[in-house]
Design a protein around this nucleic acid. Structure first.
Lengths: 217, 217
DNA sequence: CTGGCTACGATTGTATGCAATCATCGAACG
DNA sequence: CGTTCGATGATTGCATACAATCGTAGCCAG
């Protein structure tokens, strides 16, 4: 793995896991020393992260970890609410049995690590959840969809998602996932699309409980 | 404007206008000499263009102008068909009169430069068309939408679009634009969404006449 | 006391040199 | 004759030095 990739992976991981707080300054020399490489690969990594939407880059003023307003968060959920149901609809008739089985296992894991108690691991839950959603998008057969959703979801906003879930909301989330897989098994695109739409809307209302959802047009 | 920005703008322009053919190799030293800068800003520009999807970047093997298969083109249109009607729906009730008037003028220009004859300028038409579509997305009020569509449409596939339009298709495109503005004036989101959906579908069928549009699910 | 100006330090932007990797071509071997 | 290995040239990846720009602190004038 090249130094650029290494720097990119490290920085991305640090941002997603909250080691760098939103708005924190990312000085090139400091990062270069920390990562043990020169400024060049650090710069390239920062550019890449800026393209991903994870850092804000101002000319001659350096990089900062990106922040998201409630409005942006809402915009994001609206787009997810558009794209992911479409992905689920297409996945319903395209996903194969092996993948379906893998997703079942994924749901088992998610329900286990999500169960309140000493074994609960919400960070792992976030990862598994991201895996599930990505798998659905990949199964849609639209090669651009996965990347598109990835470019808007800007995962850091999602990594902490489950920390804000109530037990009820978490339970509902699990049930949505199970129902989604059921709709896949039934090869029912309408059902799959509806379930995913509900799922995204529910997530939105956990993270943005107070924002009014003004009319669609 | 910095050398990086300059290089980026030059390369992007060159790709979009076909000065670099799809698949063409983009050597760093060659570009650096051509643009009169060093390799560093060229590298950054190439990274940026790769993030935009305009160039493919292989480790240790350099950059090439990106190419698009029919399947990718189709995937793109499916996503545009999802996102742009949504944008039009929201724009219908959010666009202000001044902007609406500007778009009317834009349509005037498009119909003039699109008219067959010695004054026809299809490249300019493409630009104006892109401007119109971007304006609608911007007027949607969803701050992420414009960037999202931009990241998938990868304009080069669209820059040559109008060269493949028959006079009939061109006429239809113009009428779609006019009808879209009419729906805006009427503040009718359903109408706006429908028109935009038709518009995208029509464009898709000009560029991909032979691909069957397999069922939505 | 406030406003603006200047000098300085810190940081980013750019250029260039060196190291590492890859593609090409040719030759030796099976 | 085809295949594989190795040398070589070209190109990218990385490091570092230098230039340009920005933020800040301090001073001076009003």
């Amino acid at each position: 793995m090249s130094a650029s990739d290494e720097a990119y992976a490290q920085l991305r991981d640090g941002i997603l896991h909250g080691r760098f707080e939103p708005g924190a300054r990312l000085g090139e020399v400091e990062l270069a020393e920390t990562l043990g490489v020169s400024r060049t690969p650090v710069r390239e990594a920062l550019r890449q992260l800026a393209a991903d939407g994870l850092v804000d880059l101002a000319p001659n003023r350096g990089a900062r970890v990106a922040t998201w307003s409630d409005a942006e968060l809402q915009d994001t959920f609206e787009l997810r609410g558009l794209l992911e149901p479409y992905g689920a609809r297409r996945a319903a008739t395209r996903i194969d049995d092996a993948e379906l089985q893998r997703l079942e296992a994924l749901c088992d894991d998610m329900e286990r690590v999500g169960r309140p108690g000493p074994g609960q691991d919400l960070n792992l839950l976030s990862q598994l959840n991201a895996d599930l959603h990505k798998s659905v998008l990949a199964a849609s057969g639209n090669t651009k969809l996965l990347g598109l959703v990835g470019s808007v979801v800007s995962v850091p906003m999602v990594i902490r998602t489950f920390h804000r879930y109530s037990p009820d909301s978490l339970e509902r989330s699990h049930r949505h996932h199970r129902e989604l897989l059921a709709s896949f098994r039934a090869r029912d695109p309408d059902w799959a699309e509806s379930v995913m739409r509900s799922h995204i809307h529910a997530a939105r209302n956990v993270l943005l409980p107070n924002t009014s959802r003004e009319g669609q047009g």
